[in-house]
Structure formats: structure tokens, C-alpha cells
């Protein structure tokens, strides 16, 4: 167990690890031309495409109401797309249920608080392995997440609802990693946190990546999030308008423009 943990935590293990299928690193998650919306209202996503490569943190930024959460809901099966494709590690999983997508390797930490407040941290974390039958696997994963998030181990028997917002996020992260996901979907993990807790959260996003889990991160706080990401995508009006290495995006004047009012002209 210990040695497995070591290797999973070793940063250099990540790049090659999940890319076995081919040299061209087949993405772990690919959304292609996704259209989605709620009820009879207008579409929220209008032909959105995004990919997450093994061992990377992809950050999707965009203004309030742009449809960031909707992207993650489509990816995790909470919302069925009207058109387009969701592919996880080469398998087409479009329109499957959340359970099936979890089994396919996607774990989703939704926006806002999502711990089970009246349960202990232990119960919360172990419920992350609800679909795992193998007890020794559950134990191995428990060791793994408590190592990655020491706080979770320290507050093991506390009621989750009694923790601070930042601490609850860590419990949610730990819970989401219990199934050994290929990609975790994080919806605005820094929302409502003070600067210190925000820094901790982004540090932990990097640690998840270094431990071998790819991350699709959604943030409103673009600058802060892009600093922790490898790839950035700018979402507006239901589509990804700009994609590129996160550092380039940080320097891109169009990003500043998008956030300082004035949307970019639709090019299509």
C-alpha cells in the first residue's frame, strides 16, 4: 500500500502513466459539439467541445451564467445532452446515467457545499466508495485520500456539516477520489472561501493532478484558477472561444477584454 502511494504521489509518474493506449495520448475525456439546455428554455451549450488529456488540469473559465456548471453536468450524466458526444477514455458514454459515468471514471464535485452535513467525515468519505464492493480497495483508497488530505484524517469523526467551508471542500475532494476516477470534475471549488482557503484548494487541485488524476476545473475566478491549470478554455455564449496553455491565456488580451465587459465578437 505504502509503495503504491509513493509512486502515485510522485509527480513524474503522471505524464506517462495513463497514456498507455498510444503515443498520441488519447484524451481521457472528450466532449464534442455538445448541445444542452434545461426544459424548453433556450440552449445553454451550443456546440461546445473540450478535451482533458491524462495528467493535466484543464480549467474552464467564463462569466456568471455562461454554462460552466452545465458542461460538468453533461459530463457526469446529471444532464442529458441534446446533441454531441461524451467520450471517456475512448468509450462513448453519451446520455448514460451518473452511476454509469462514475463507473466509466468520472467523479463530479458539484458547485457549493455538497457534503452530507449530518454525517461524519468518515461516513462521507466512505460513501464515496458506495459503488466499490472490494473492501481492501476501500481501505487502500481511504489510506490514499487521508494521506493526500491530512485534515480529513484529523477530523475523521467530526460531523461534516460542522466543518468550515474550506474543510468541507477537502472532504468532498477526498470523497470524489475514493472510486479511483480517471478525471475529476470540480465546479468552482473556491467559491465562498477566503483567500487562504482558496490557496489551499488550488494547491490540492495540483496535488490531485500529481497523484495521477486528471482534472477538469470550472472557475469564475479566472486568473487565480489559470495559475494552477495546464490548459485554459474560455467559455462564453455556450461555446469554447479560446483554448490554449494556461500561461498563454493569462497573457491573452482577449481574456482581459472578456472580463472587463465587452464580449468578443462571435466568429462563426
Amino acid at each position: 500500500m505504502e509503495s503504491e502511494l509513493e509512486s502515485e504521489l510522485a509527480p513524474q509518474a503522471t505524464a506517462g502513466q495513463a497514456a498507455e493506449p498510444g503515443p498520441a495520448a488519447e484524451p481521457l475525456l472528450r466532449l464534442t459539439d455538445v448541445q444542452a439546455g434545461y426544459g424548453r428554455a433556450a440552449l445553454v451549450l451550443r456546440g461546445l467541445s473540450v478535451t482533458v488529456a491524462p495528467g493535466s488540469v484543464v480549467c474552464l473559465v467564463g462569466p456568471n451564467g455562461a454554462g460552466k456548471s452545465t458542461v460538468l453536468k453533461v459530463a457526469s450524466g446529471l444532464l442529458k445532452p441534446r446533441a454531441g458526444q461524451v467520450v471517456v477514455d475512448g468509450v462513448d458514454v453519451t446520455g448514460r446515467s451518473p452511476q454509469q459515468l462514475l463507473a466509466a471514471g468520472l467523479s463530479h464535485v458539484p458547485q457549493g457545499h455538497s457534503v452530507f452535513p449530518e454525517m461524519t467525515v468518515a461516513e462521507n468519505v466512505l460513501l464515496g466508495a458506495y459503488t466499490v464492493r472490494d473492501r481492501s480497495e476501500v481501505e487502500a483508497r481511504t489510506d490514499f485520500v487521508t494521506e493526500l488530505f491530512p485534515l480529513v484524517g484529523e477530523r475523521w469523526s467530526a460531523l461534516a456539516g460542522a466543518l468550515s467551508g474550506g474543510q468541507q471542500k477537502q472532504v468532498e475532494f477526498a470523497r470524489s477520489l475514493m472510486v479511483r476516477p480517471k478525471v475529476v470534475l470540480l465546479d468552482e471549488p473556491s467559491m465562498g472561501l477566503d483567500p487562504k482557503a482558496t490557496a489551499v484548494v488550488f494547491e490540492q487541485v495540483r496535488r490531485m493532478r500529481d497523484a495521477g488524476t486528471a482534472v477538469l476545473l470550472v472557475e469564475q475566478n479566472a486568473r487565480r484558477a489559470l495559475e494552477s491549470a495546464d490548459v485554459g478554455c474560455v467559455l462564453d455564449l455556450g461555446r469554447v472561444h479560446i483554448t490554449g496553455p494556461a500561461p498563454d491565456l493569462l497573457a491573452d488580451p482577449r481574456l482581459a477584454q472578456l472580463y472587463l465587459g465587452g464580449r468578443p465578437k462571435e466568429v462563426s
Binding site: 457526469s76 458539484p110 455538497s114 452530507f116 459503488t131
Partner: peptide, 23 residues
Amino acid sequence: TSFGRALRATTQHPEAARLIGID
């Protein structure tokens, strides 16, 4: 029981319950 935990989870946060694979 595992069912009981699933039921309490569903009561406390239905969406999170679905996301951890509870039907």
C-alpha cells in the same frame, strides 16, 4: 446498513448522492 446510508445521503444532498452512484 448500506441502504440506510444511501437513504440518509439522499435525504441530506440528493444531487451529491446521485454523483457517488446512489440510485
